[in-house]
């Protein structure tokens, strides 16, 4: 069996999870701790990828990051490679799928912190930023870890947006999900089944871990 697609999926999902973590935690912190005009709109925009048709999302990515777009062009002149139809495109696609999970779960975890603890930190001389990093984040670590595991599980299996944005180029952008599709098309069912089993076991294991992390422990804290 060709392990390439699985390895590519892991590589893409790892980078996508890191990207989604940086952007998602920042957005979640903003939504959890500040009231400002447009807050609900930001929430909607970052939730949308959960329910938006992948083709629609893919279309937007092609328009904003395609070779003729300003961003896509700038990226290409800097790095010499385009975003779309490369591994970068697959990473972008997986990040978009993972982001809503990070934003939603991290926000919920941050909002669970007793606000009095944050105020206590402030009265003890902490700036908002220090209170965030020394009190709110440490108290939400389990929730944040769970969010990142969910994000990884989601990122590893992205299909629709990846196909739109990165295509299905064997050895270059053919991730496990796309390889399963191609194998089925070519009636190579055994190859498909192996990858299906591996992905299933991995996702179930991740979800089990998430459940363990988010379960309430009586002696916690």
């Amino acid at each position: 069996m060709d392990l390439g697609p699985l390895l590519l999926s892991f590589e893409v999902a790892t980078i996508a999870t890191l990207l989604a973590a940086v952007v998602g935690i920042a957005v979640a912190a903003l939504l959890a701790n500040y009231r400002f005009p447009g807050r609900d709109l930001i929430d909607v925009v970052f939730t949308a990828p959960m329910v938006m048709p992948p083709t629609v999302l893919g279309y937007y990515v092609l328009v904003t990051l395609g070779r003729r777009s300003v961003l896509g062009h700038a990226f290409e002149s800097l790095t010499g490679t385009s975003i779309v139809f490369t591994m970068t495109g697959a990473v972008v696609a997986a990040t978009i799928g993972a982001l809503p999970l990070v934003v939603k779960s991290v926000r919920a975890a941050l909002e669970q912190t007793d606000p009095t603890l944050i105020l206590a930190a402030r009265t003890l001389g902490a700036t908002k930023l220090r209170a965030f990093f020394t009190v709110q984040v440490p108290l939400a670590t389990r929730g944040i870890a769970a969010a990142l595991m969910l994000a990884f599980a989601r990122a590893v299996g992205d299909f629709g947006v990846t196909l739109m944005v990165a295509g299905d180029i064997p050895g270059k952008t053919r991730t496990a999900s796309l390889a399963i599709y191609s194998a089925i098309q070519a009636q190579h069912e055994r190859e498909a089944t192996t990858m299906v089993v591996i992905l299933t076991v991995m996702v179930l294991a991740l979800l089990y871990g998430v459940g363990k992390l988010t379960a309430r422990r009586p002696d916690d804290r």
Binding site: D114, T116, L117, L119, A120, A121, R122, T123, L124, G125, A126, T127, V135, P138, L139, R221
Partner: peptide, 19 residues
């Protein structure tokens, strides 16, 4: 701002940092 007043506030819940 709060952090520059140096007011010690002992809350009813005490608000000790649990971690």
């Amino acid at each position: 701002p709060i952090q520059r007043r140096r007011v010690a506030y002992v809350f009813q819940s005490l608000a000790l940092f649990p971690h």
